[in-house]
Amino acid sequence: MKILGLETSSRRLSVALWLDGRLLERGGDYPNAGSEYVLPWAVELLAEAGMALGDLDGIGVGAGPGGFVGLRLACGIAQGLAFGLDLPVVGVSTLEALALAAGGARVLACTDARMNEVYVAAYEIHDGMPETIMAPGVFPPERVPVPPGSGWLGAGEGFSVYGERLHEALGTTLTAVSADVWPTAAAVARLALPRLARGEGLDPALAAPRYVRDKVALTTAERLARGGVR
C-alpha cells in the first residue's frame, strides 16, 4: 500500500510517504506555518518516489488531540486531497503516534494542552502496534490518571512544560522520561496502514479532528450564572 501521512498537531510538522514497507519523511519545527510547508513536502516526497498523487491508496492524518488550528490544517488538507482523489482517510490519535515514536514498551504519552492542562493517554506496544490502556483525556498535570503497574516511559512535550507537576501525580509509575518526542507523520502512516488494509478508511466528509477539549466557550446563560455581564 501507498499511504500519505500528515501530522501537524504540534509545532513539529511532518509529512510521510509509506511505500509498501519503505518510509520517506519531511518535517521540521515550524510553529504556525503549516500552510507553507505541508503540501509542498507532500509534492516533494511524491517526486522523490517517482509517484503521482493518483498512485496513493489512502491518507492517514494525526486527528488529535493537539493544537486546534494544526488539527484542522491536516484534516482540511486530508479532506481536500481525499475528495479529489477518491481516497479513504484514517484519523489516528496523535498520542498513539507519539507513543509509537517514543519507542518504549509501555508509554504514557503526554502533550501540552495549554491553559494549565495536558492531553494524556497510555499505550502498551505489542509487535509495533499500540494497545490502548488509557484513552486520551485532558487533565490538570497534578490530576492525570495513573496507568496500572510500573515500568512506564513518560513521553512528550507535557513533561518539559509540566515535569514537576506530573511527577507529583505519577510518583514511581514512570521509570524514564523522554520529553523531546513528538507525534510524527511516519508513525501516523504506520498506524493508518493496518486500518486502511482492513477497509476501515472513512469517506473524507467524515474525517474530523478529535479535539478532546470540547468545551471552548461559555454561553451567555453560563456567563450570567457565573456572575458575568451580558
Partner: peptide, 9 residues
C-alpha cells in the same frame, strides 16, 4: 487548507 489540497489533487 481544503481548497488548496483539492486543487492540487
Amino acid at each position: 487548507s481544503f481548497a488548496e489540497a483539492l486543487a492540487l489533487s
